[in-house]
Design a protein around this nucleic acid. Structure first.
Lengths: 201, 201
DNA sequence: CCCGGAAAGTAAGCATTGGTAACATCTCCT
DNA sequence: AGGAGATGTTACCAATGCTTACTTTCCGGG
């Protein structure tokens, strides 16, 4: 090709599309994504994207995958240095809710596949999940955690965490558009409450 | 018009469309809804639906409204005869999770508007929410509930409830496609755990 | 070095959709 | 009776997802 002309081959089209789609989903949600628009933006014909993503859904799946990886990274970071179950739970809850508050559309997309994809919070990183369960055992042996089924305890943790995050994303009147600092405070207060329990009977 | 012919006016078009859309969302989700398909199914021209719903989104909003009313009804039913906070919480959580398990797509649609619509669980029925907060006060006075901010307690309740429901809908590996009986058991176990607390320190 | 197949792009077209505009028909109220 | 407004209809537009057939480029084995 002669210099200054568009090369026939884009070179990084797949990555370009994925990146653009990622940003678009983050800011405006998946409905705002159009194959043709992405193609135009990348300076390429309407059919080109289909060489890299056989389907619009496949593109969105790839975006979701990337978002998942991002969230997973942050959760790992948060859980890394925790040496007991209650601390790990607190840390991951804060990180989880924070991510939801900062990237609601991505958070939504991650879970949008419904039942089929079979991915989820704990599922994101089995290692982290197993670590949590092990820590719960330890806590029980040390007499710091009551003798309930550790799986149930972990599940209840996840439910509270996921619930807080979802309430932020889904627009709970008192939680909508939380700043990430507020998200942190809320997550801390709620986990605290879960630990102490809300009934005295 | 001559007998045996389609009358020019359908008569119940609005309700027919709404009903069909409701069923379709319930079984296949909102993406499966097409104005034109609904029109065909109702035996009417493609433009007719727009006389009743200015917009596809308006139709979906109406469906969401109807679903909300249905959920609200069930929650009211569950909360009606509860005389203390813990009981009401248990009952509404069970009903909420059950609805999510039985109608995941509708449940999803209800919260799909994001921040804008400003509707939510407790918001569905302020009366029920206020009743819960009053019951929490009572419980605190009777020494059955610890002296934390009642709003926070209610919020944590909602978070756990919403989280459980969402995990079912969003496809948590261990919770996907729960039967409503299993949903009941899960909701009971988790609320129990929240009441007693997961930390002894 | 060249040459042939695979990879990556293009142009054109199809079916479908949401939405609009202009026109037709019915209903109902005065 | 007749006119206004609600409800339908036809015809149309622009956009989208996706496919098919064709072209250009890249690259590795003879």
């Amino acid at each position: 090709m002669s210099a200054g002309q568009q090369p026939y081959h884009h070179g990084h089209l797949r990555e370009t599309l994925l990146e653009a789609a990622f940003r678009l989903v983050d800011s405006e949600g998946p409905e705002a994504v159009s194959m043709r628009a992405l193609a135009r933006q990348a300076g390429v014909s309407s059919a080109a994207p289909f060489r890299h993503f056989s389907d619009k859904q496949v593109l969105l799946d790839a975006v979701a995958e990337r978002a998942r990886a991002e969230l997973d990274r942050k959760l790992d970071e948060a859980a890394a240095h925790c040496t007991d179950a209650l601390t790990q739970f607190r840390a991951t809850t804060v990180a989880y809710v924070r991510f939801a508050a900062e990237h609601p559309k991505l958070f939504d997309l991650i879970h949008s596949g419904g039942v089929t994809p079979g991915r989820f919070l704990g599922d994101l990183n089995d290692e982290r999940r197993l670590k949590l369960i092990a820590l719960i055992y330890e806590g029980q042996n040390a007499g710091l955690i009551p003798e309930a089924d550790p799986e149930l305890i972990a599940l209840t943790n996840e439910a509270l965490t996921h619930g807080l995050a979802r309430m932020v994303v889904d627009g709970h009147p008192r939680l909508a558009s939380l700043s990430s600092e507020d998200a942190r405070k809320l997550a801390l207060a709620a986990t605290q409450l879960l630990q102490s329990g809300i009934g005295l009977s």
